[in-house]
């Protein structure tokens, strides 16, 4: 556990120095604190999910996004993967082998979309909607991609780094008293 964490801290050069990049299920593999992380491309993603599903990863436990706008030079990515502004992070679980796997997908800012995982993993329905709501990443093939946490007419995506987290004046759609 210790060595891997240290490697993480060493930055992208550290992993570039490794001779043959590790691969698992056809995607570059890294380790972070003892956890396996795959870095598939967007195009690989749907097929990879199918492979994983067949390999026994039956549940997507978590799916979320990260906006790396103010922290672009992050470490932990293999040399073959170019960092983009957004990342979609998917956590899968294999109940039989008691194994976990994390996928980190790079999503460019000018084309923030990804294939939906809903056909294989219907449990991602709410998670993809949340990621859309909070980051504005669109999921192709999602049947009902609407906001889930914010009001429907809300402009902006609150977890983006260029969204002002601070206080906004309270607004209230003037409702006449109806008694």
């Amino acid at each position: 556990m210790t060595d891997e964490a240290a490697q993480d801290g060493a930055g992208a050069e550290g992993s570039a120095a490794t001779p043959a990049p590790e691969e698992l299920f056809g995607a570059p593999l890294t380790r972070s604190g003892g956890q396996l992380v795959l870095h598939p491309s967007r195009e690989q993603y749907p097929l990879l999910l199918r492979t994983l599903h067949e390999a026994g990863y039956l549940s997507i436990i978590d799916l979320t996004g990260v906006d790396y706008l103010t922290h672009p030079g992050r470490s932990g990515l293999p040399a073959s993967v170019a960092p983009e502004r957004f990342e979609v992070v998917v956590n899968l679980i294999n109940h039989r082998e008691r194994a976990r796997l994390r996928l980190r997908l790079q999503i460019p800012a000018d084309d923030a979309r990804l294939a939906s995982a809903i056909d294989l993993y219907p449990g991602t329905e709410a998670m993809e909607r949340e990621t859309f709501d909070m980051f504005g990443i669109e999921f192709d093939g999602h049947p009902d991609l609407t906001r889930i946490l914010m009001p429907e007419d809300w402009p902006g995506h609150p977890l983006r780094k260029d969204y002002d987290p601070g206080r906004i004046p309270v607004q209230f759609k003037g409702a006449p008293a109806n008694r």
């Binding site: 309270v170 607004q171 759609k173």
Partner: peptide
């Protein structure tokens, strides 16, 4: 007082509900 959206004197809002 309840600040109505678009009421005179209320701060215009860049973010949020419109």
């Amino acid at each position: 007082v309840i600040e109505q959206v678009g009421a005179p004197g209320s701060t215009p809002v860049a973010l949020g509900r419109n």
